[in-house]
């Protein structure tokens, strides 16, 4: 009975708290210099841009659970991260400021569908360009060259690259490409492979020393390292190539060219590096050279 009263008390207490919550939050994310929206932009022959114009707002598909890449800040309910800054930059160059952007979180498996349905105008969120996807959607960019890498504890010097994983517990997401690669190339023993439903869980296990390595694209790993730069580090020897692109409708060549121009300019005038340093750069990994835009 006493336990029950306590439990009910806790519940009521937490509900009561709701009425008087704190606003804002202890966000540690530095933000990149915001871009003034361009004026008088025209993109001839782009159905998507016409739709944006008619709506007066731009709808961007993003990830909401990747720290320092695309994350919905739990205390401010604002989207933050590298991908988000890229999305903001593109929107600004199309003439739409931060206040005219609607973000829509879309999980990985429904990205193609969301773009094809027109639920989002374009998608920025760890979206690897590959030929299979190019049949359904098109890609501007790449704006970042990711590659499979390793996240380890800061004091761990025994892991230097994919060949030093033998005897180490390696964690990644159930059924993901990175963990398949570890298995196929036999980088570690099968019983040392640990799978969870999300990277966050792997990072939790890494911090509590239940696993030794988390592996996936370096961009994602850098995001987690940026969250706890004094506890985690990215090894920095990528062993695959995952070019991240901006996904958009398959037949919208005009908008694709426009976004390619925006990205290319940002890479040349230093905006790209500013964005990197303000987000993923917090992990301690220096900015790489931005990738070559692939206009096809």
């Amino acid at each position: 009975m006493r336990v029950r009263t306590l439990a009910v008390g806790l519940l009521v207490g937490s509900l009561a708290l709701t009425a008087c919550g704190k606003q804002g939050g202890p966000s540690q994310l530095g933000s990149a210099p915001s871009q003034a929206p361009a004026t008088g932009v025209t993109v001839d022959g782009s159905p998507t841009f016409d739709k944006i114009k008619a709506r007066g707002r731009v709808v961007i598909g993003v990830k909401q659970d990747q720290p320092y890449l695309g994350q919905l800040n739990p205390t401010t309910h604002k989207y933050e991260g590298f991908d988000i800054e890229i999305a903001k930059l593109v929107a600004a160059k199309l003439g739409y400021g931060e206040d005219k952007i609607d973000y829509k979180p879309i999980p990985s498996q429904s990205r193609e569908q969301a773009i094809q349905n027109g639920d989002v105008d374009f998608y920025v969120g760890t979206y690897t360009i590959n030929d299979k996807r190019k049949q359904q959607v098109s890609f501007a960019g790449p704006y970042y060259m990711a590659g499979q890498d390793l996240l380890v504890r800061k004091d761990d010097t025994s892991i230097t690259g994919p060949t030093s994983l033998k005897g180490k517990k390696v964690c990644s997401v159930t059924g993901s490409t990175p963990i398949q690669r570890v298995r196929d190339q036999q980088l570690t023993e099968p019983n040392n492979i640990v799978e969870f439903q999300g990277y966050q869980q792997c990072v939790d296990q890494l911090l509590s020393k239940q696993v030794d390595v988390v592996t996936t694209d370096d961009a994602i790993l850098k995001g987690y390292a940026a969250q706890s730069p004094d506890q985690l580090k990215v090894v920095g020897k990528p062993f695959s190539q995952e070019p991240y692109g901006v996904g958009l409708a398959h037949d919208d060549k005009a908008l694709r060219t426009k976004i390619d121009d925006v990205l290319q300019q940002a890479e040349q005038d230093g905006t790209w590096k500013q964005i990197y340093d303000a987000t993923l750069g917090k992990s301690g990994s220096p900015a790489p050279t931005p990738p070559q835009i692939d206009r096809y």
Binding site: V194, Q201, D204, Q205, S208, K209, Q210
Partner: peptide
């Protein structure tokens, strides 16, 4: 699986 390892007690396998 997630909380116990944080208590710094005996390390156990999954």
């Amino acid at each position: 699986v997630f909380a116990y390892p944080r208590l710094g007690l005996v390390e156990l396998s999954f």
